[in-house]
Design a protein around this nucleic acid. Sequence first.
DNA 1: TGCTAAAACTAATTGTATTAGTTAAAATAA
DNA 2: TTATTTTAACTAATACAATTAGTTTTAGCA
Lengths: 191, 191
Amino acid sequence: MKMSPRPKVGLELTEILGAAAEIANQFGMQEVTLANLAKKLGIRPPSLYNHFDGLAGLRKKMAIYGLDQLYEALSQSAIGVSGDEAVLSISKAYVDFTRKYPGVYEATLMAPDMEDEDVQHAGSRIVHLSVRVLQAYRLEGDTVTHAVRGLRSILHGFSSLEQRGGFKMALDLDESLEIIIKAFIQGMREN
Amino acid sequence: MKMSPRPKVGLELTEILGAAAEIANQFGMQEVTLANLAKKLGIRPPSLYNHFDGLAGLRKKMAIYGLDQLYEALSQSAIGVSGDEAVLSISKAYVDFTRKYPGVYEATLMAPDMEDEDVQHAGSRIVHLSVRVLQAYRLEGDTVTHAVRGLRSILHGFSSLEQRGGFKMALDLDESLEIIIKAFIQGMREN
DNA sequence: TGCTAAAACTAATTGTATTAGTTAAAATAA
DNA sequence: TTATTTTAACTAATACAATTAGTTTTAGCA
């Protein structure tokens, strides 16, 4: 019996998620396979099952990891600002994030079950942040909820379309975002 | 040697795309595999290669098919209306479409190459329709382009988030959409 | 020192897309 | 009508992904 040297890699979950995020950002989520991830980490695919429950488990963990990072970026951008300035600030931070970490953002949308409690919780922090920022406008009744839905729709739709190359006109995208957001919040305030 | 009867199925591409759309609408695009599609059609997976170039080719054809259907629904909804009424009408038609045919809408976003000429062309018809509807507001300069980008962002973002169960508050979604769209177009007009 | 648990491993199974080569049916040409 | 060509099915085989079962090494701890 030969003593094949099996160096105990001793992987931490965060290193695994970091490696998975790198693959996702560089090549897209469809390239985040157990085979590719294992290769990058220098281990065999079945070994990954010691850290999470298969591909579905990995995607869930990546979604939560991504939502946490996105929340972090957004909340940082909202420090010390309020009103229009705050809404514009988190809007730009949101789009910046999807540009810098497209794969992580993609992972955010690829949880096997969006109804899952942990995923919901990670996402709800972002919703609550939006609520807090929009409450500055003192909208009445359910209007805050409608406004949050609108803001999220704009940010997600804009980012998604931009990532897919959906905007073909040669016209500055940051300018578009600013104009769109300003129009929306002004329109919400007036009704 | 027995003459095994091999009934010439004589599939038309539209029947194949229809079957694929049914799978997509019922079970999601991840279930649109060559194996599942072939089973539904009563043929063997390799036979599908006579009709399109593998899974990537199928996805491209489904994307174009979906964009054409979406355009059809939107343009019908815009007949005989103008201004706010027209924008609201196509917005509702857009969201209705994604609710009735979620898999087809998903296919719209899953083309292997969004830059592909045929896919771009199918998508551009929808953009042109939006331009025509928004031109009623006589926005100046590049503002029409910004407005089209905003409208598309809202509609795509809203639909996408709704489909993924992203809106958890118990508050009517159609009402949200109407308020969001009205706020956006009013805000765009005033600047 | 010896036990236990964590985290790696190999081997084998299943399901997927894909390619190569074959054949029957239908359409077309002689 | 008969012969040829094209279309669209087929079988067989390959490559690669996820997964499961069972095994082994390493590290920490009693």
